[in-house]
């Protein structure tokens, strides 16, 4: 208890020092506000423009969450197919690496041309970059089951469905979560990147990525900072949501979740 208190104090102290340094730099180098606004100005902007900020936040969160969820379902389904045969894996797994290495910034304009600008295109971009880590990790988890465990099920004349549901899927759960944890981080990046190109929506206001380009063009640097802050908060929320789910499902039995418990 006392220790957590000191931890919070330390972390808070570092934050305070950084903010003071920031303010001091502006004062010492007399940086104009359109280049670097003061921390106080950013805080005021967050309060004054909170409704539009929250709206952008919501749009981006929706795109990132839909893309991530879709990639979890599709990625797991693809991994289940891959787990069926070595040949399929040898043939198609290299292409999932391709999925990961193609720079999303380069193909985003293409996707927008095909899907049309808007929420759907942004979700699609998020989906595409989230897919690879989920396929790779889940496949690994599904196929790395101990041979004797499979034998145990075979001795009982277990059906293929029983082996899948009662053995392979639960065994793959920790790996699936590793994939989702990686994907949750890049889903926010993906959604914002997508919005940089396709965020202009007809509803009047786009997500964080769109608003960032808009704020930059208008030289509303204080609002730009507020948007970056919102994007960071969003990333944190996704990360902790996945951490929580991982802990919830695995802490009873899996080593990785248990370690966070004892710390």
């Amino acid at each position: 208890m006392k220790r957590t208190f000191y931890n919070v104090l330390n972390t808070g102290g570092v934050l305070l020092m950084l903010l003071l340094l920031w303010r001091a730099l502006i004062w010492a180098l007399s940086i104009p506000p359109y280049m670097l606004p003061t921390p106080l100005a950013v805080a005021q902007t967050v309060i004054h423009r909170f409704p539009s900020l929250a709206n952008s936040f919501y749009i981006t969160a929706l795109a990132a969450a839909s893309g991530l969820l879709a990639s979890i379902f599709v990625g797991t389904a693809i991994a289940l197919i891959f787990a069926q045969s070595r040949w399929l894996r040898l043939m198609f797994l290299p292409y999932t690496i391709l999925l990961q290495t193609v720079p999303i910034v380069a193909i985003a304009p293409l996707i927008i041309m095909w899907a049309g600008a808007g929420l759907f295109a942004v979700t699609l971009i998020t989906f595409i970059i989230c897919l690879a880590p989920i396929i790779a990790n889940t496949t690994q988890g599904l196929v790395s089951v101990d041979e004797n465990m499979v034998n145990l099920f075979l001795m009982q004349n277990a059906s293929g469905a029983q082996i899948l549901w009662k053995l392979r899927l639960p065994h793959a759960l920790p790996s699936l979560f590793t994939g989702v944890r990686i994907a949750s981080g890049i889903s926010v990046i993906g959604a914002i990147t997508g919005e940089l190109f396709a965020g202009s929506s007809s509803i009047g206001q786009g997500g964080l990525g769109y608003s960032i380009t808009y704020a930059l063009a208008q030289l509303q640097t204080d609002y730009l900072f507020a948007l970056v802050l919102a994007a960071t908060v969003l990333g944190f929320m996704f990360f902790f949501a996945v951490m929580f789910l991982e802990y919830y499902f695995l802490h009873n039995w899996h080593e990785s979740a248990r370690k966070t418990e004892s710390q």
């Binding site: 101990d146 004797n148 465990m149 034998n151 145990l152 099920f153 001795m155 009982q156 004349n157 277990a158 029983q162 009662k166 053995l167 639960p170 065994h171 759960l173 009873n252 039995w253 899996h254």
Partner: peptide, 28 residues
């Protein structure tokens, strides 16, 4: 009529002891 006991206990780590013991009955 045959049961196999492996070198490792091959227990399913996500199941409690009682659910591990009941696994084969469950499969039946």
């Amino acid at each position: 009529i045959v049961s196999f006991i492996f070198q490792d206990a091959t227990l399913l780590p996500w199941r409690t002891v009682e659910d591990n013991v009941g696994l084969r009955l469950e499969l039946e």
